[in-house]
Design a protein around this nucleic acid. Structure first.
Lengths: 201, 201
DNA sequence: GTCTATAAAGAGATAGAC
DNA sequence: GTCTATCTCTTTATAGAC
């Protein structure tokens, strides 16, 4: 949840990166070209420092990835432990979680984007995928509860509903760019409208 | 639309790949590990032949990718030129296109999966992205028409609706596996139900 | 916190025989 | 249609100076 605490007092001359700034820059580049397709040389060139300088802050390229995934997963998991997600009707808790997930997606766009593209090619990636699966299962549980209380249609399996819902939510990283026409709150409203009430007039 | 015409008469001994079989195998491996993360050595080892044998069938690793993307894009674009997508009420054409897209996704799962993960790191990838954008815009146009005819709610921008819809559809490649509980037709029904009528009872 | 230079391994692709 | 061997370039990561 630490998102560049102060706006970083506009350094002059040589960047003089600290670990946090470097992470943010690296994740931006990873998202443009893909993590695997981005060599450390290409990365550091884009950021304007040498490879050795980056290796002063991180042990490996993969540790950069790990830090980013931790950031994304921590923020998403926190949504499930929010008061609004813990008590009340299941439908309201589900709505709160969807709204919270959209908010995290937008607030932590680069980290979540990177997370959603991980395929499991290393121990770090597999751990991240395991945490994603656990998250998804808690969503499916929430949908099941909402079906039992009668507020969500029961003619579609809960796990399918959960997947379609988060398919819609997660796809936001593919096109949403901050400062566009749509702000985060409006976007969450749109998602909830489509998901709960549908497009048909 | 050529999907292993005959089920390939179960060769004995040495594989003796032809270009088509090799493509199918390669795409499967690319989807498991990611295209960039898969070296030609790792790929051919998995397929049980030498690098030189693969280079007998394809000029380059990228040409394998290109063939797969062509397959996926051709099939998707064909959906837009289907009779049901060309005449009738806009809402019905939209529904037909969604249904067709789900069908293609399922029928050409490996190729479409690969397509959806392309980031634009080469000319081949950028051409594919351009075709995807064109496809997306035709969908947005269809949504706009449906809004004008009054069959789709107008309080959400057409381009946002189109993106959320295809976010839901495209996310299917992340979890759908043929032969599971859900068949393609049922899956398309579920998507249309959620998209048009929503989850709320 | 940064740099240049370099090590060691892995990448894509080819040569030429069978 | 396949193989082994090899070329060349790029990769991740480190050494050691400033």
């Amino acid at each position: 949840m630490t998102d560049t605490p102060a706006p970083a007092p506009a350094r002059r001359g040589r960047p003089g990166y600290d670990r946090e700034q470097l992470l943010a820059g690296a994740v931006r580049v990873f998202n443009e070209q893909g993590y695997d397709a981005t060599s450390v040389a290409a990365l550091t060139e884009r950021l304007g420092l040498s490879k050795a300088a980056l290796y002063h802050h991180f042990d490996s390229k993969e540790q950069v990835l790990d830090a980013s995934l931790e950031h994304a997963l921590g923020s998403l998991e926190a949504v499930l432990d929010t008061p609004d997600a813990l008590s009340g009707d299941a439908i309201d808790r589900l709505a709160a979680v969807l709204r919270g997930a959209v908010a995290v997606l937008v607030a932590e766009l680069p980290h979540v984007t990177l997370l959603l593209r991980v395929r499991g090619n290393s121990e770090v990636e597999r751990r991240a995928l395991a945490r994603r699966r656990a998250f998804d299962q808690r969503i499916a549980g929430l949908v099941r509860e909402a079906q039992r209380e009668g507020s969500v249609r029961s003619d579609i399996e809960a796990s399918v509903v959960a997947r379609l819902l988060f398919g819609m939510v997660n796809s936001i990283v593919e096109w949403y760019r901050p400062g566009g026409a749509e702000d985060a709150g409006r976007l969450a409203d749109d998602v909830l409208t489509v998901a709960l009430h549908g497009l048909r007039t």
